[in-house]
Design a protein around this nucleic acid. Structure first.
Length: 762
DNA sequence: TCTCCGAGAGTTTTT
DNA sequence: CTCTCGGAGA
């Protein structure tokens, strides 16, 4: 069969057009579930099959490693079905992985060594703290985290310390520049790059060495970028650079699914693509094949409330399916129980397997209660994200040993494990080594060695340090010639890390040993997958860049739980989105923000979550939820209200109120419960109960309060005679003990007993 | 130098 | 509420 016929069969006209358009700038606006991956893979197969480009002349950038793997898999499938032979490896990867690959080749030009290490954000934070100590900057007045985020955003804008200096004049920024500069020096000394560096240094490389850039421009004659709406500025610059020569750039995205602006993603990249490339062809994929019609229509109605979007409407010819289930519960425990019970009874009726169910939430903290409820019902589940595997202490420790074995300059790794397990090398000694290193401009490893030679420590300490240095030298040697798995066993053994854990018989140690076993399994699996390529360096790379979704395998039969963010790109037949409450989803920060765009991003998140569902969708919220041990009463999320009522099946299990709310007028119930237009399955009784929607603070405890004694609720603007104007951040207690926490303009939070504080509403 | 305890901070989201 | 960090005492 003809290649073109083959790759375009079973495609709709828009999809077909996208697959056939190979030359020039192309923008594909792909709504949720519109067959985006299908188009990308078929387009690539089309190029290769027709011989327009060889498989290693196409660069395809995706957002996650999982997406990359998936795409690679599918392309191989199509190509082999077509009878085409692929000689060379495909370049499908994330920006970060792509950059690592480039940098391993060329980073010597930037005066780094090719075996550079990669720092994750906690390593980065340690490095910043180290720098701050050296600069004698008080970390109480200037939190290290602030510097971290400022440095990160500077890097994402493509700014060096000098560039940052020029672009700003504020006080904190002066300090930031100072820290940034010192941080860069330290990172270079440690021969390590942070996440942002991977992109920035590649950009620098291309900028400073046009011949290298040209080589890649010539090589990658076709470029495709997936999830273009979530690219940040530096990624944008990289893409522009690589594509500028041939302009065969195809970007795919959905502005309605841009949910990473907090990480520097710039939605303008996709909105302005047609300005960047005047001759760009635009193709819209608007037919959703994934979800039942009620879900598509509900999600569409929600996203329509955003202003920052292109004119694009999702439609479907699928059956209407179930109405969207909206469920009100008393508190977060009841909410969890409802989810667990629903899954259980559906399973009893033979609906799908556990794999077909997913639960999404806004914040990781919400998972705890849900887990509890699933466990009591005996429902198997797995968490994606949260405390990541490689962020656990014992894993980070072992990784630090591995890192230090190939990159002795890695001071952060050294500091982490020099006394783990305890070797009697204490804080004072470490500080001395650090000082000495700074003084002599050596790495701490070198400094420790030198300090021993020069007898800077007493005999006992010197012996301890010597033993550590010998250990590391031994490991460094072994790292050179041992196979990955063997080496790992050697490290576990010689560092006596495992032995120390085994000696301690606490359950925590037991868990740690199990985690190390899991790490061993991970290495074994890595070796199996990569074969020849499974070096220590490549493994550490994988550990740094691959997140948990990437390893999410569908094999084991269990319910999946994750944050809404991670859910992007996935789909499940049955989806629960929990915690749809104001100040949680949308988050308090965005809801209070004056910037309407913050709420729009939350709305996109809601859109992403809803459109993951193929057949059935539940949206749940709790009237009361404990946050930081405090009870919070938040009204249902505005996003629920934005769904047309004829698409909703509303049920509540929460008690109807005994009396109407006394304070805090509810603007909510007026257009929610009050409107008599419920979905067909809602009974009149449900309708009556909807009244309980109104202000959630209608609890009997308040009955004795004098009217107007505490007219404060979350989000309210108040004035205090001494502290000025602020926003109510949280409330607690009742009656005389009714307290409010107020965040003032300088970001300080103060707690007041309302009865005594002279607070007034603004 | 290590261990234990108390204070204080933190929750958005992660390649 | 829960985790982390820093300080004091053994």
């Amino acid at each position: 069969m003809d290649v073109l016929d083959f790759v375009t069969k079973n495609l709709n006209p828009a999809q077909k057009d996208a697959v056939e358009t190979l030359e020039g700038p192309l923008l594909i606006l792909a709504g949720a579930g519109s067959g985006k991956t299908r188009v990308l893979t078929h387009r690539m197969a089309n190029m290769i099959g027709q011989g327009v480009a060889a498989s290693d002349e196409i660069l395809c950038v995706t957002f996650t490693n999982k997406a990359a793997k998936e795409m690679e898999h599918r392309i191989y499938k199509i190509l082999s079905d077509m009878g085409a032979v692929v000689q060379t490896q495909l370049w499908i990867s994330t920006f970060h992985s792509f950059c690592v690959r480039v940098l391993r080749q060329h980073i010597t030009l930037l005066d780094y060594k090719p075996f550079f290490g990669i720092y994750d954000s906690s390593d980065q934070l340690s490095q910043i703290k180290k720098v701050m100590t050296a600069l004698d900057i008080n970390d109480k007045m200037y939190p290290a985290k602030n510097f971290q985020s400022r440095i990160s955003s500077a890097k994402m804008m493509g700014l060096s310390p000098e560039g940052l200096e020029k672009s700003s004049k504020r006080l904190m920024d002066q300090k930031t520049v100072e820290v940034y500069k010192a941080y860069e020096r330290e990172m270079k000394k440690a021969n390590s790059l942070d996440f942002d560096d991977l992109l920035l240094k590649t950009y620098d490389l291309f900028r400073m060495y046009p011949d290298v850039l040209q080589m890649y421009q010539k090589k990658f004659r076709y470029i495709m970028v997936d999830e273009y709406q979530d690219t940040n500025h530096i990624q944008y610059l990289l893409v522009q650079m690589l594509a500028s020569a041939h302009r065969n750039l195809c970007v795919v995205g959905d502005e309605d699914q841009s949910i990473y602006s907090w990480r520097g993603a710039d939605i303008k990249n996709i909105l302005d693509f047609e300005k960047d490339f005047r001759d760009a062809k635009v193709i819209k994929l608007e037919e959703n094949y994934r979800s039942s019609a009620n879900i598509v229509n509900g999600a569409t109605a929600v996203i329509k409330n955003n202003s920052q979007r292109k004119d694009k409407t999702l439609f479907t010819s699928n059956d209407p399916g179930d109405l969207i289930h909206v469920r009100e519960e008393k508190n977060e425990y009841e909410e969890g129980r409802f989810v667990a019970k629903t899954i259980q009874s559906m399973m009893n009726e033979g609906e799908g397997s556990y794999n077909d169910y997913a639960i999404f939430y806004r914040t990781n903290a919400q998972s705890r209660v849900l887990e509890e409820q699933l466990r009591t019902m005996g429902i198997p589940y797995r968490l994606v994200g949260g405390v990541r595997f490689y962020e656990r202490m014992e894993i980070k420790d072992m990784i630090s040993y591995l890192k230090l074995s190939i990159n002795p300059a890695d001071d952060i790794a050294l500091k982490r494990i020099i006394n783990v397990p305890a070797r009697g090398i204490g804080k004072t000694t470490i500080e001395k080594i650090e000082e000495y290193a700074a003084h002599k401009n050596l790495s701490m490893f070198e400094a420790a060695e030198k300090a021993c030679e020069e007898r800077l420590f007493n005999a006992g300490t010197t012996g301890k340090i010597r033993r550590f240095i010998d250990l590391m030298k031994d490991l460094q040697q072994n790292a050179q010639h041992l196979k990955l798995l063997e080496f790992f066993a050697v490290v576990l053994d010689r560092t006596e890390y495992l032995a120390a854990l085994k000696k301690d018989e606490s359950p925590e140690s037991q868990a740690r040993i199990e985690n190390l076993e899991e790490l061993d399994n991970a290495i074994a699996q890595f070796v199996q997958e990569r074969g020849e390529e499974s070096t220590l360096i490549s493994f550490l790379e994988e550990m740094a860049l691959v997140n948990d979704v990437d390893s999410l395998d569908q094999e084991q039969n269990s319910v999946t739980m994750m944050t809404l963010h991670i859910s992007k790109g996935l789909e499940y037949p049955y989806v629960f989105v929990v915690g749809l409450e104001e100040n949680l989803f949308p988050s308090a920060r965005s809801a209070e923000s004056d910037n309407e765009q913050d709420v729009e991003e939350e709305r996109r998140l809601a859109y992403v979550g809803m459109t993951r569902a193929r057949q059935k969708l539940w949206l749940t919220y709790a009237k009361m939820r404990r946050v930081w041990g405090q009870e919070q009463f938040n009204p249902p999320s505005r996003f629920i209200k934005e769904i047309p009522q004829n698409l909703i099946d509303f049920k509540t299990s929460a008690e109807a109120p005994r009396f109407m709310a006394r304070y805090g007028s509810s603007s909510y119930d007026s257009d929610f419960g009050g409107t008599p237009k419920w979905g067909a399955t809602s009974s009149d009784r449900n309708r009556a109960r909807t009244q309980s929607y109104d202000d959630a603070q209608d609890f009997p405890d308040y009955e004795n309060d004098g009217a107007g004694s505490a007219p404060f609720s979350k989000g309210m603007r108040v004035r205090h005679p001494t502290f000025g104007v602020g926003t109510v951040y949280a409330t607690e207690g009742t009656g005389e003990n009714f307290k409010v926490s107020v965040m003032f303009t300088d970001n300080t939070v103060k707690k007041f007993v309302v009865k005594y504080a002279r607070l007034e509403r603004v």
